[in-house]
């Protein structure tokens, strides 16, 4: 018995059945002076194979010029979001069998392409950073107690893996360069409801959320974010909750 090195998956006899699938990859290399084009690869298929397995097979065995990002291969690091057959997905959690015998892979839309499937995520990160995605600790935070109900409020929002799938899918973020977008507003909400934070910071968060150009009111409720989020966070709903927080704060005169 022979153990292969990390192939599609470590120790997996590749494509024993002789079956193959077609991977259509959108290629672009800024050094070449040639515009983007699609390249097709025939990839040996095995049951259980993911799209990332197929891409790594191409990189290692067929075409070393391919560029992509990947790290954890278990949908927790957020590296591998891309357009797969027209939809934002994580390559590592997508079964080839689930998307069909021809798989088309393109870089995330609405972000500048660096090369092939690698996009420049800085514009997305800038929006994340603008939402103050960090807790500012209270000065009196000895003996912390967090009621389980409060934990429930931010539990889901803190699952975000910063993959940018929602940002890429959001029509409002596309048409308005100032709009913070679903993930960033989700983070704003996540910290807003966390009582471990210095209470004097809360109004500032709500002011950011209330910003006319960048904030919650720019959300058109297209819910594209919630459809594509691989962590089932439902950012659309978090934005709706944040809107309610903002309105309450306005009425009570806190902001």
């Amino acid at each position: 018995m022979r153990v292969e090195g990390e192939g599609g998956g470590a120790g997996v006899p590749a494509g024993g059945s002789g079956e193959t699938v077609v991977f259509r990859v959108r290629r672009y290399d800024p050094e070449s002076g040639v515009g983007p084009y699609y390249q097709e690869y025939e990839v040996p298929y095995r049951p259980g194979m993911t799209v990332l397995d197929g891409l790594l097979h191409i990189l290692r065995e067929v075409d070393q010029t391919l560029s992509l990002r990947y790290s954890c291969r278990q949908k927790i690091c957020g590296s591998c979001a891309m357009l797969i057959n027209g939809r934002e997905r994580l390559a590592c959690e997508t079964q080839v069998a689930e998307v069909g015998r021809t798989v088309t892979m393109e870089p995330l839309p609405h972000l500048p392409v660096i090369k092939d499937l690698v996009v420049d995520v800085e514009p997305f990160l800038d929006k994340m950073k603008a939402s103050m995605p960090y807790l500012i600790p209270r000065s009196d935070s000895e003996n912390i107690r967090v009621p389980p109900e409060e934990f429930e409020r931010y539990r889901v929002a803190s699952d975000c893996i910063w993959c940018a799938a929602c940002y890429s899918a959001c029509p409002a973020a596309y048409s308005n360069p100032y709009y913070l977008g679903p993930a960033a507003l989700g983070q704003l909400f996540r910290f807003e409801v966390d009582s471990r934070e210095d209470p004097s910071v809360k109004p500032l968060r709500l002011v950011i959320a209330d910003d006319d150009c960048a904030g919650v009111w720019r959300c058109h409720q297209a819910h594209a974010c919630s459809e594509v989020c691989p962590k089932h966070i439902n950012p659309g709903e978090l934005i709706a909750e944040l809107k309610r927080e903002v309105l309450r704060a306005r009425i009570s005169g806190r902001i």
Binding site: R69, S71, C72, Q74, I76, C77, G78, S79, V121, L125, I161, W162
Partner: peptide, 11 residues
């Protein structure tokens, strides 16, 4: 090598 939140620790 990777953006910090892509590090193995998240797993």
């Amino acid at each position: 090598l990777v953006y910090p939140m892509r590090s193995h620790s998240v797993a």
